[in-house]
C-alpha cells in the first residue's frame, strides 16, 4: 500500500523542525552561540586574553573575574571566549579538507570501480590500520609542534572515513535507474557525478561533516593539551586545560571552563550530526 504523498518542500522543512528532539534544538542554539562568540567575542570579553594581572594573581570566581583567574592573573572567562575562535577554526579547516578529499575520492572510487576503486580503498584500509593519534604525535615530534601541521595531519587521518562512506552511497546511487538513464542518454561522466549523484549524496556527507567536526575538535584539543599543537600561552581550550590542571584546587573553574566547553561543543556537533544522518539518510532513496 503506497499512497503518494505530495508535499511542497516547506512542509518537509517544518516537519523536520517539529520532530527534532529538545537535545538537538539545544545543540543548535549552543552552536549558534559559539559562532556568535567567534565573530564578536573580542568585543564582549571584559579583558584581553593575554593581559597579565600579576597583582591580582590567582583568584577564584568573583564580580570582576567571572571564572576567576589563572596563576598569571589572566581572566579565564575572557580566555574561554577567545578560545572559541581556535575551537572552530581548526576543526572547520579539517572538516572542509576531509569533505573535499573524501567526496572526490569516494565518488571516483564508487562510480569508476575497477583498479581505481581498489587502489583508493586499499589506501583507506591502510589508514584505518594506522593508530592515528600515535602517528600524529610521532610526526609532530619529528617535524616540530605547529597548529597547521596538526590540522594537515588530521585532514589526512579523517578523509579515509569520509571516502569510505561516500563510496558506499555512490555505489548505491550508481545502480539506480536515474543514473543508468543518464549514462544511456550519453551524458558526460562529469555531469553524471556532479549534477546527478553528488546532490543526492550531499545530505549524507553533510551530516558526516558534523561528526567529523566533533572528532577533530577533541583530537586538536588533545594535541594542544600534550603541547603538540598551538604554542604555549595561547587562549586555546586544550592548552588552557593543560596549563591550569595544576590549579585544580585553587581555581577549579580555570580547568573546568575550557574542559566543559570542549565537551559541550563536541556533544552538540555529534547530536546534530547524528540527527541529520537519521533524517537525511533515507532521502533520495527509491520509494
Amino acid at each position: 500500500m503506497t499512497s503518494l504523498v505530495v508535499g511542497p518542500r516547506a512542509q518537509v522543512g517544518r516537519r523536520l523542525l517539529r520532530s527534532s528532539p529538545l537535545t538537538v534544538t539545544v545543540s543548535f542554539v549552543f552552536v549558534g552561540l559559539l559562532i556568535f562568540l567567534a565573530l564578536f567575542g573580542p568585543l564582549l570579553a571584559p579583558h584581553g586574553p593575554e593581559s597579565l594581572n600579576l597583582a591580582t594573581g590567582l583568584t577564584t570566581p568573583n564580580g570582576e573575574f567571572w571564572f576567576g583567574t589563572d596563576d598569571l592573573g589572566r581572566d579565564v572567562f575572557s580566555r574561554t571566549i577567545y578560545g572559541v575562535r581556535y575551537a572552530l577554526f581548526g576543526p572547520v579547516l579539517i572538516v572542509v579538507g576531509a569533505f573535499v578529499i573524501g567526496n572526490v575520492l569516494g565518488l571516483a572510487a564508487g562510480y569508476r570501480g575497477g583498479l581505481l576503486d581498489a587502489s583508493i580503498m586499499r589506501w583507506v584500509d591502510l589508514m584505518y590500520a594506522v593508530p592515528g593519534l600515535l602517528v600524529t604525535i610521532v610526526l609532530i615530534g619529528v617535524l616540530g609542534a605547529s597548529y597547521l601541521l596538526a590540522v594537515v595531519v588530521l585532514v589526512v587521518l579523517t578523509s579515509p572515513f569520509d571516502t569510505r562512506i561516500i563510496r558506499g552511497v555512490t555505489l548505491e546511487q550508481r545502480s539506480l535507474p536515474y543514473v543508468e538513464a543518464a549514462r544511456t542518454l550519453g551524458l558526460p561522466v562529469r555531469a553524471i557525478l556532479f549534477r546527478h549523484i553528488f546532490p543526492n549524496i550531499l545530505p549524507i556527507s553533510f551530516a558526516n561533516a558534523f561528526l567529523n567536526f566533533a572528532f577533530s575538535l577533541v583530537a586538536l584539543s588533545a594535541l594542544s593539551f600534550l603541547g603538540l599543537g598551538i604554542g604555549p600561552g595561547t587562549a586555546d581550550w586544550g592548552r588552557m586545560l593543560s596549563e591550569s590542571r595544576l590549579l585544580l584546587f585553587d581555581n577549579p573553574v580555570a580547568a573546568l571552563a575550557p574542559g566543559g566547553m570542549i565537551v559541550l561543543t563536541a556533544t552538540s556537533m555529534n547530536l546534530i550530526g547524528d540527527w541529520l544522518y537519521d533524517r537525511l539518510a533515507d532521502r533520495g532513496r527509491a520509494r
Binding site: 539506480l176 549534477r195 546532490p199 543526492n200 533520495g284 527509491a286
Partner: peptide, 10 residues
C-alpha cells in the same frame, strides 16, 4: 520503476 528513474532533486 518510475520512482527511481528520475533524479529526485531535479
Amino acid at each position: 520503476d518510475p520512482y527511481s528513474s528520475l533524479n529526485p532533486l531535479r
